[in-house]
Design a protein around this nucleic acid. Structure first.
Length: 632
DNA sequence: CTAGGGTTAG
């Protein structure tokens, strides 16, 4: 609705019964989520000096809550006070909610403390504390509410814990540290008889996912007798956010079978899973589904699509989707910049960044993570450092550990290890595992045992159970022929009962994702795959005879080598795919150099292009040539 | 007062 139309209809309303008519207008706008328009209407109302009643304020305050406008909220609060009469419970709960959603829980509390509170005011404040991730106060208030409910000290108000109370509390548990409280609340839900309330159970599913308890979430889901769209979406997003991409696809299929129709949130989760799996084929189907359902312009989905295509290795399509997106937010730019960065196109990534700034979008911390990592993937060390300065000086953004780890990576890959160490020492925030880990990774590339030991010391203190770092150090010792060091790391690993998870890779074929562990014999085509692999190994040996001792040494001492999962995946893909058609995408290949070599040679032999993706970056092997500046 | 949501290194 335009401002003129608003004025016209408001004028028409005034001729009727001013306040009721105004309120009806407000109700309409609020229903249609036209919150800005509702507030515009309010300004017109004030100008024509109307008399608000109890129905007026809640609509306005809801708009403030939604748009997070603390000033407008307090202006309306002042107006409420000016009316002279005691505000009714609805107005008070709206005030509490508005303040809480504007990140002013203190003001919300003040309103709450002014007089005795009925259920909705308790609920509003509890939900407000939850929203501001202040679980302690939310739970305290819940306890107070239960006492009030039991004792009923104040007969003027009625207090009852209801499903909304528990809903607000449960959805406040959003991190692993909240698990204990979350599980307690789950118990409360059962005891209070809300365990069959759909909204409550849905929020329990989400709560367990957010706490990282994938199995418990699944259990709640399995026990549900009724499921709706939200239930399925909670499962899909939950699995996606916890990195269980294959379960996402499973649940997605189940959902379609159950006859519930999808919405943008569903597809968002599925796209993110496709991105993680490298399942471009499924991703493409999702894109069609998107168009078919009329979600083609949904900016959230378009961003997810850009990210999916780039992470599946199809930068061309990612670029097309990006270019055709009308609404380009900082998130859209982050996705496309990251996409170019991940593929080694650092220069393009930087150009895109400049274009973004030109287009008037203000960069945030996240986009700088993409920019910095793009620079390090492309070897643009000095430009990366320039952008790091730009971030601090021009945009006044405080770098977090995630930025420092990129810059350490940047310096480290370029061999500037001392500078990297100095940078870490100069940090104002405490370096996290990733920062020292980046340094350790750089030491592997540049074979620097001394700095590696320093980095390892710190990283192990911060992430004592992250097996990757032990493996990295052990392999650094291997390169340096330092047997004593290798043994030391192995003893450490044994003492801490750490075992390396088997590596795995996957290939998408005919809409299904085929997963291979190293040494895996469970695939139905296992026999053929291994035959194919033998053949490939022999061909590879012919054109690249093993380099005597060197190869043997590494086979024996590197941790986690053997029949690599990616070799199985390659053999599978070659067995099943038509010549020249597909690009093969694999993931999670923390591949050591000899395996890269293997892939490169196979690529030459079969004359096919592979895009191999590992956990940290993409490597392109086109006609046997690695375009990503050779392993870095 | 009221359940599910896009981007992000190592």
């Amino acid at each position: 609705m335009s401002a003129d139309q608003l004025r016209d209809s408001a004028a028409a309303a005034e001729r009727w019964n001013p306040t009721t008519a105004w309120n009806n207008q407000l109700r309409q706008l609020s229903k249609q989520r036209q919150y800005r328009e509702a507030l515009t209407l309010y300004r017109n109302m004030v100008r024509s000096s109307f008399f608000p009643n109890a129905f007026t304020f809640p609509f306005l305050l809801k708009s403030c809550a939604f748009l997070s406008l603390p000033l407008t909220a307090s202006q309306i609060h002042a107006h409420v006070i000016r009316t002279g009469s005691q505000p009714d419970p609805y107005t008070r709960s709206s005030l509490i909610n508005a303040y809480a959603k504007c990140f002013l829980p203190h003001n919300a509390r003040k309103v709450f403390d002014e007089m005795p509170n009925p259920t909705i005011c308790y609920n509003a404040l509890i939900s407000g504390y939850s929203f501001n991730s202040n679980l302690t106060d939310a739970v305290k208030l819940f306890c107070q509410m239960r006492r009030e409910e039991e004792d009923g000290l104040d007969a003027s108000v009625n207090v009852n814990v209801n499903s909304v109370t528990l809903l607000s509390l449960v959805s406040g548990c959003s991190a692993a540290t909240h698990l204990t409280i979350g599980a307690c609340l789950h118990g409360c839900c059962v005891r209070f008889g809300f365990a069959t309330d759909l909204a409550v159970t849905n929020s329990l599913v989400t709560m367990y996912f957010k706490c990282g308890e994938v199995e418990l979430a699944r259990q709640v889901f399995d026990e549900m007798l009724v499921r709706d769209l939200i239930t399925w979406n909670a499962m899909i997003s939950g699995y996606a956010q916890n990195g269980h991409a294959r379960n996402v696809l499973e649940v997605y299929n189940e959902m379609k079978l159950s006859g519930v129709s999808v919405d943008p949130v569903t597809l968002l989760g599925v796209l993110s899973a496709c991105a993680n799996l490298g399942a471009q084929g499924i991703g493409r189907q999702v894109e069609h589904e998107m168009e078919r359902c009329g979600f083609g312009c949904n900016p959230f989905l378009r961003n997810a699509l850009v990210s999916m295509y780039s992470r599946c290795g199809n930068l061309t399509r990612a670029r097309e989707v990006f270019d055709c997106s009308r609404e380009k937010s900082v998130v859209s730019w982050t996705a496309i910049i990251g996409g170019h960065g991940i593929h080694g196109h650092g220069e393009v990534a930087l150009e895109l960044f400049d274009k973004m700034v030109e287009s008037g979008v203000r960069p945030d911390k996240t986009v700088f993570v993409s920019v910095l990592s793009a620079c390090s993937h492309a070897g643009l060390t000095d430009r990366g450092l320039e952008y790091f300065e730009l971030m601090k000086m021009k945009y006044g953004l405080q770098p977090g550990p995630e930025h420092y780890s990129c810059v350490v990576d940047l310096l480290g890959r370029a061999g500037r290890l001392e500078e990297a160490v100095d940078l870490i020492r100069s940090m104002k925030v405490k370096p996290d595992g990733a920062v020292w880990g980046a340094l350790l990774g750089a030491c592997k590339i540049h074979k620097n045992v001394e700095v590696a030991e320093l980095a390892f010391q710190h990283v192990v203190e911060l992430e004592p159970t992250n097996i990757g770092y032990y493996v990295l150090l052990s392999n650094i010792y291997t390169d340096a022929n330092n047997l004593e060091g290798i043994l030391r790391v192995r003893v450490l690993m044994r003492e801490r009962k750490l075992r390396k998870d088997p590596g795995y890779s996957y290939v998408e074929y005919k809409g299904k994702v085929h997963l291979f562990y190293s040494g895996d014999l469970s695939h139905p085509q296992s026999k053929e795959i291994n035959r194919m692999l033998d053949e490939l190994e022999n061909l590879v040996k012919e054109i690249h005879p093993p380099n005597e001792k060197c190869e043997e040494r590494s086979e024996e001492l590197l941790i986690g080598t053997g029949v690599h999962s990616e070799k199985l995946a390659i053999a599978f893909a070659l067995l099943n795919t038509k010549r020249g058609k597909e690009i093969i995408v694999m993931k999670n290949l923390r591949v050591c150099v000899d395996c890269h070599l293997f892939i490169k040679l196979v690529s030459k032999i079969v004359n096919r292009q592979f895009i191999v993706r590992d956990a940290t970056r993409f490597h392109h092997f086109r006609d046997g040539i690695c375009s990503c500046k050779d392993y870095w």
